[in-house]
Amino acid sequence: MSEEQLNMETERSRSLEEQFEARIARDEKIEPKDWMPEKYRKTHIRQMSQHAHSEIVGMLPEGNWITRAPSLRRKVALLAKVQDEAGHGLYLYSACETLGISRDELYEQLHSGKAKYSSIFNYPTITWADMGAIGWLVDGAAIINQVPLCNTSYGPYARAMVRVCKEESFHQRQGYEIMIKLTNGTPEQKELAQDALNRWWWPSLMMLGPTDAESVHTEQSMKWKLKRKSNDDLRQQFIDQTVPQAELIGLTIPDPDLKWNEEKKSYDFGEINWDEFWQVVKGHGPCNKERMKARVGAWERGEWVRDAAMAHAEKKQTSLKKEVS
């Protein structure tokens, strides 16, 4: 390529990039076949697949209670919920594939530890009340994170999020309802509920991401509408929304420093243990290894099944071709 050609090429991509940014600024949706900067594509694959992986790994802690749900009604609701999560995963992997990466490649990234998933799922679900706490707090925090994404710039992601958010908000109410039932129950049940809140409160706050000072992706993501509020703002919103819900059902938030601040019209809260957050993110939480072992195990045990399905489909295709000719 001559220098002149090179200059033209650079000029061309610069102008494409300007047009691209202008479209986003005008709130237009970017669709799979549209031109997009490589960084946009990569960032979206990273965030969307991370989201999909979180749905899939997130099936494990709740799946853990399906066989032990306390009533048939709860069992059916929990099965349906975990199935919704699988559906979200499927949706999001498909949306991700529109950016030119296969589901198998995405799985490979998850299994090798290259791709991350939400750290909250590395905590164990040790009592039935954890099903309530996860729905109420974890899905509650997820919604706060995800509602703004219904207006994100990448079309397939935005559309997937509309559906995901509807279902998540149902899950959140379902979780809160489990907690209501427990707090209206026997002292033993109340204790289960309080204990679950004690264990899930801080990890739920961490779930909204590191403080703004330490968040590496925020600025670019804001521009692309992958993010509309900072982690700290989202966290504050979550706390302000959740504290009254806890009070309403007679549960105590496990934070001695939590206090209403009349001036800023929101709650002040205690110090988050970021060492714990980073420990879990780096793979050393209570269940990181179990979760990965379960995912990789399912994938490896399923290999002969997937191979068989492929082989069968090819045989069918061949016999169909023969019939046609």
Binding site: I56, I66, Q83, A86, G89, A294, G297, G302, E303, V305
Partner: peptide, 17 residues
């Protein structure tokens, strides 16, 4: 119900559930 989350593919997982 025991299999939920442990199926050979996402599609079979959803179907069994």
């Amino acid at each position: 119900g025991e299999l939920c989350g442990h199926g050979p593919s996402l599609e079979t997982d959803i179907a069994c559930t």
